[in-house]
């Protein structure tokens, strides 16, 4: 949909995840408006667990809609320090508020410099075509 929006204070990946800095070396991760729109009604989110080591570009969970399942990729390497428990009971938050209450997990990034290597909103929107 053309009304999808991409906040300029976030960073993005080609796998349609967004990344928001929440501290010096911590980031919050979710999926973009484009991704939730393409998936349709999200009914189940399988997030990594707190303490899991995640590697940039590797699958670390799943987002399922009524009709399909998509892998969740970690945008950066590090350790999972928080997961959004609210998605257990209300996975539809990923659709209704993808950049807010629909966040999925938080990572303590091993190399904070890698955050700047991700796309900005303009670059992300550009590659959506």
């Amino acid at each position: 949909m053309s009304d999808a929006s991409y906040p300029t204070d976030l960073r993005y990946t080609a796998e349609h995840e967004w990344v928001k800095s929440t501290g010096e070396d911590t980031v919050r991760v979710g999926i973009t408006s484009f991704a939730q729109e393409a998936l349709g009604d999200v009914v189940y989110v399988s997030a990594p667990s707190i303490g899991d080591a995640v590697t940039a570009g590797d699958s670390c969970g799943e987002v399922e809609s009524t009709k399909s399942v998509s892998d969740l990729y970690s945008p950066l390497s590090g350790e999972v320090v928080a997961v959004n428990d609210a998605l257990d009971a209300t996975p539809e938050l990923v659709n209704s508020d993808p950049y807010g209450d629909g966040w999925i997990f938080e990572v303590r990034v091993s190399d904070p410099a890698t955050i700047d290597g991700l796309m900005d909103a303009t670059a992300y929107e550009g590659q959506l075509g």
Partner: peptide, 11 residues
């Protein structure tokens, strides 16, 4: 059609 705007599978 798979689903419509304003609806979605669940609605």
């Amino acid at each position: 059609p798979i689903e419509y705007p304003g609806g979605g599978v669940v609605a």
